[in-house]
């Protein structure tokens, strides 16, 4: 407490610090305990998903729900494979040469089934990856160009254009989809990867332009001006000055676009059926195939959610900005 107070520092109640301290400390502890409890409560569904993914079918639907159980990969097997119910004689034969079966078949055998092929889910996951990846690449690429133009130049009708770009995100997906559905049917883009990439790119573009414009606005104009004076062309200045400066913004935008198209459901439900179907619209359908395979659903959800959870942790500094279209940058 040997700080010398500069005149600008406000008069603080630091003289009372020991008096205020105790009550403060208790209240912070109480708050911390409550906050931790609430955080745990909020994580229960996610934790439960993780547990259910490793349950066997009877464990998953046990009443009352079980917390301790023998972990099993049955859920993953039924998610990833097509299986066939074996006849009694086949089961006995398989039981006899149990050791010759691979581990996946051994697990399937517990339910008297044998694996006859892979399910559609891995393919859908790959579709999700391709579509989300490609659309993110294009939307961030186009987004950074447009954001730069919007940030640095006076464009006639700029505000209207920006408003229009953003307003796309306000519309319910179904409203947008009806005409696009007809259009896609007409030109043969329905249920194609290219069609989905195109749609997600335009959908994400609105977001990436807004977010990146905020980041580029923060880079001082003077850097480029100095470069221009030094003989750089505008393009060189953009590539060598602006892009490296905006790299955090580009990274954050990339990941947010990726998450948006990764999680997207409505468009994928209405504009794909088989070839280009992504994972989100298919997870509810796992419900339908031969009774409710909760372990399989949990396994699929878990596989689908884990990347996002990791990204949340990595991105926590940019989270605020990302989820508010770059409107808010404090915090």
């Amino acid at each position: 407490m040997t700080t010398i107070y500069t005149p600008s520092a406000p008069v603080s109640y630091s003289t009372r610090v020991d008096k205020v301290g105790r009550g403060q400390r208790i209240s912070v502890t109480v708050r911390a305990i409550i906050a931790v409890l609430i955080a745990l409560l909020m994580l229960v569904p996610v934790i439960w998903m993780g547990l259910t993914a490793f349950k066997t079918r009877p464990d998953a639907v046990a009443a009352p729900p079980v917390l301790l159980f023998q972990p099993s990969l049955e859920g993953f097997i039924s998610l990833l494979t097509e299986r066939r119910q074996m006849t009694q004689s086949e089961i006995t034969a398989a039981e006899a040469n149990r050791d010759q079966l691979d581990w996946a078949n051994q697990i399937a055998l517990l339910r008297g089934q044998t694996i006859i092929g892979t399910s559609a889910f891995p393919r859908q996951l790959v579709n999700s990856l391709i579509i989300a990846g490609a659309s993110t690449f294009f939307s961030v690429g186009f987004g950074v160009l447009s954001a730069y133009a919007f940030s640095r130049f006076n464009i006639p009708g700029k505000d209207d254009l920006l408003f229009f770009i953003l307003s796309q995100r306000m519309l319910p997906a179904v409203v947008v989809t009806i005409p696009i559905f007809l259009m896609y049917k007409e030109v043969g883009l329905y249920d194609t990867h290219f069609g989905m990439v195109l749609l997600y790119t335009s959908f994400n573009l609105s977001f990436s332009v807004w977010l990146l414009k905020g980041f580029i606005d923060e880079i001082p104009k003077e850097y480029e001006e100095a470069a221009l004076v030094d003989g750089y062309t505008r393009l060189q200045a953009f590539r060598k000055i602006v892009l490296p400066q905006a790299i955090t913004g580009i990274a954050a935008t990339t990941v947010f676009s990726l998450i948006f198209s990764w999680n997207e459901y409505a468009f994928a439900l209405m504009l794909t059926s088989d070839v280009a179907r992504t994972a989100p619209p298919s997870i509810p359908l796992v419900l339908g195939t031969g009774g409710i395979e909760w372990a399989a659903i949990a396994a699929g959800s878990l596989a689908f959610l884990i990347p996002v959870v990791i990204v949340t942790f990595v991105l926590r500094k940019h989270l605020l900005r990302g989820v508010t279209f770059g409107a808010i940058r404090k915090g």
């Binding site: 609430i38 955080a39 909020m42 994580l43 569904p45 996610v46 998450i259 990764w262 999680n263 459901y265 989100p280 619209p281 997870i283 509810p284 699929g300 959800s301 689908f304 959610l305 996002v308 959870v309 990204v311 949340t312 926590r316 989270l319 989820v323």
Partner: peptide, 12 residues
């Protein structure tokens, strides 16, 4: 940790 739910896929 509290922020995790909002990043997840709504349909899932």
């Amino acid at each position: 940790l509290i922020l995790v739910p909002m990043m997840l896929s709504p349909i899932v």
